[in-house]
Design a protein around this nucleic acid. Structure first.
Ligand code: NAD
Ligand code: NAD
Lengths: 287, 287
DNA sequence: ATGCGTTTGTGAACGTGTGCACAAAGATGG
DNA sequence: CCATCTTTGTGCACACGTTCACAAACGCAT
């Protein structure tokens, strides 16, 4: 039963393969691309203060990165600096904007105008960089009549028309997780090839479609992990059984499977637990 | 003029240094930590369907990753699988939860209850994983009276009290960018050691404080970059001057600096530009 | 012109992350 | 108890990303 990758490749954010193949075409590493907007923001601020040139050291500080990294990043774009002087701010703003495709207009649709969709629709920093909200879409008839940020919320039925007629290639999904894959499929079917997904769902898309996700819950969990480490709190001493090699562990595994079996509720000892390091797992593993 | 790193290290998300030092302490790579929440979500779904065991292949598909990667990730946690069978779902849910610190309660404060702050406060998936909104805070007197998601919005004055008395170690910043660093400083001063920042600002924090950022604008720009590539649209043929080595390029640089000089508006030829590959930059570089 | 101080651009070393491929471990059936 | 089949856990090779350190390039003053 060979599990051949199904033809729709699930290209999520942390998948280097697809994304890299694209960007390596002309040699800009993905990690660099992800930092360009950061540099651009810092440069824009300098530009507004009419600063003519900036050194890699200064700009790196403003962007919160290592200066060597910044120089290497810029080197992928070309030689836009002047030795002994630094970089011309205006010129660099233009070059990075161009490289990121920000010199063109990118119409986007937002699907799912609930709490988050509303916030995004109202977000000013949206339009500031060439991204224009082409339409707000929702399935709920109660929502469809209303307006958000001056734009009318339109019905999902109009999705295809809007995407095609306005040449929308970027879609933002802010529906509940259950609807995300369906919405995604419709967007892709209509011609959208880049998706920003706020729903906590793994989206599956065909090759050639990029998906990036924003997941609040994941971010918090990562923070919690490090927070736990800081507290010197080795995450509850592991059962000796599981560290032991050989048949002992196997027996433990067997027991686990035999015990839990069905629809047992969450492993009991889960609640508050005032970060006491001692936290035995007899509750979950009745050995 | 040696530019010694100032003692407050600007540890942003994409800075491996600080984060890694922490997690390497007991050997879980940062990339793995970032995927654990993904696995946990998939496992929780299986658990709700009362699936007793799952193979690395199945789980990997559900989480949208390579199965070898998943197995290696789990190997950092210990040997929790059974060869020939797979992983016990309930047990693995517990192990990952514990590793992520989700078996304890994490009170968080949200600062800046505007569009986004409201949406976050209303977000259900928040509390579902041990994260509890301890307080909503804002500086605007008009907002302070109101309630969001059943919680009262309290004034910034109360920040320190709340953080200390409720042992808050995680703070979420959803203020305008201008206020973010100030708010951050106050949070840190009060004792918060993990910050999730939604404002498009580079935060500077002392060592030992983790910052993660969520930046919609950056995500869109990355998508735009790849979108441009897909359109076969080499980002507007580079001026020959800049590719040429030697004195020619230097002269060009000189010209740029001399020309632009002051507060010149955005490099003119910036507008719509119907994705025509030909887009000369004489406007920005009057050579 | 020449020399001096500054800053870029990059080669090279190193650390991290990914994916293949396979031996070893265990389940299962006879 | 043995044979066979499934699936884990991991050694290994390679790709990617980061950082150091320094020669070459440039501006500027003399
Ligand atoms: N609110 C937050 O702060 C937050 C944070 C992180 C993630 N999320 C995620 O973002 C998504 C949206 O969150 P929310 O709080 O705005 O939820 P919400 O319930 O307020 O809004 C969801 C909207 O989607 C619409 N919708 C439902 N099914 C649809 C469909 N098939 N097609 C089109 N529209 C449909 C609903 O009518 C509703 O207006 C959820 O997946 C949530 O998990 C939200
Ligand atoms: N709305 C979005 O979808 C979105 C998306 C991405 C990023 N952001 C960023 O998130 C942040 C918030 O966005 P928003 O749309 O909710 O803005 P908003 O203006 O609606 O809300 C900001 C809130 O912060 C409060 N505030 C201002 N200064 C404060 C201070 N010093 N201390 C405490 N509170 C203070 C204001 O009173 C207001 O209630 C902004 O930085 C924005 O760039 C927003």
């Amino acid at each position: 039963m060979a599990i051949g990758r199904p033809s729709p490749s699930s290209s999520q954010t942390p998948d280097p393969g697809a994304a890299r193949r694209t960007s390596r075409a002309r040699g800009i590493p993905e990690a660099t691309v992800a930092r360009l907007p950061l540099y651009l923001r810092a440069l824009t601020a300098l530009s507004e203060r009419s600063v003519p040139t900036v050194s890699s050291e200064e700009l790196a500080a403003a962007a919160g990165v290592n200066s060597a990294k910044l120089r290497k990043d810029f080197s992928y774009l070309g030689s836009y600096g002047t030795r002994g002087v630094g970089y011309d701010v205006e010129y660099l703003v233009y070059q990075i904007s161009r490289e990121l495709g920000l010199t063109q207009d990118w119409p986007v649709v937002i699907v799912g105008i609930g709490n988050l969709g509303h916030a995004l629709a109202n977000y000013g920093g949206f339009a500031s960089r060439g991204f224009r909200v082409a339409a707000l879409l929702d399935a709920d008839p109660n929502v469809v009549g209303s307006t958000a940020a001056g734009l009318p919320v339109r019905h999902m039925d109009e999705l295809e028309d809007i995407v095609v007629s306005q040449h929308v290639s970027i879609g933002v999904i802010t529906t509940p997780p259950g609807a995300a894959q369906l919405v995604c499929d419709r967007l892709v079917e209509a011609g959208v090839t880049s998706i920003l997904n706020f729903a906590p769902t793994v989206l599956t898309v065909p090759d050639g479609v990029d998906v990036r996700k924003v997941d609040l819950s994941i971010e918090l969990q990562i923070l919690a992990f490090h927070e736990q480490r800081k507290a010197g709190d080795e995450p509850a001493g592991d059962s000796v059984l599981d560290r032991a090699p050989g048949p002992v562990r196997a027996a433990a595994a067997k027991l686990r499977r035999a015990a839990g079996g069905g629809k047992s509720a969450e492993p009991a000892k889960n609640a508050p637990a005032a970060q006491g390091p001692e936290d035995d797992l007899s509750a979950v593993m009745p050995a």
